[in-house]
């Protein structure tokens, strides 16, 4: 509907420092590189993901914050018996942290610039992800309580 004939009229800033923060239930950490993550994208089919079930650490890369596939992938992966560290990576919103945790992720890796932009308080609000949870109440959840 609202197509403009002007080229390059968007003002999004695409350059960004690569430095990232890890968000967990205990707050913010900088990357410690203690474990090597196996990287997959949200395009991966569940069968291919399940082959990684005995790995120590897997990182699922979200294309963007509207890419909801990662949540279902995490749930299925935990269902397959994956016991290692499951990390999400991508420009997600603070409001999605609880969805990550409830789906079976342990933590989120995200550019520190994005963390700052949303304000740290917004991120910390998500740490209370286990309360007010309908699905847990209905038994349709595999979530490990902290």
């Amino acid at each position: 509907m609202r197509e403009n004939n002007c080229a390059n009229s968007t003002t999004k800033n695409k350059t960004r420092r690569e430095s990232c923060l890890i968000i967990t239930d205990s707050g913010f950490e900088t990357e410690d590189y203690r474990v090597d993550f196996i990287d997959v994208t949200t395009d991966i089919v569940p069968q291919a993901l399940s082959k990684l079930r005995d790995s120590r650490a897997v990182r699922i890369n979200f294309a963007n914050f509207k890419d909801g596939r990662g949540f279902t992938l995490a749930r299925l992966f935990r269902l397959e018996g994956f016991k290692g560290v499951l990390r999400a990576k991508g420009d997600l919103l603070p409001d999605q942290y609880s969805m990550l945790r409830r789906s079976g992720f342990d933590e989120l890796e995200i550019a520190d610039m994005v963390v700052e932009r949303h304000s740290k308080a917004a991120w910390l609000a998500g740490i209370n992800w286990h309360s007010h949870h309908y699905q847990k109440r209905l038994g349709s959840s595999l979530i490990r309580e902290p």
């Binding site: 949540f71 969805m99 007010h132």
Partner: peptide, 17 residues
Amino acid sequence: ELLRQWSTDHQEFQFLP
């Protein structure tokens, strides 16, 4: 009503296609 409760804030299904 069961569907309402189950679908409300369902962690996997807030960002569907």
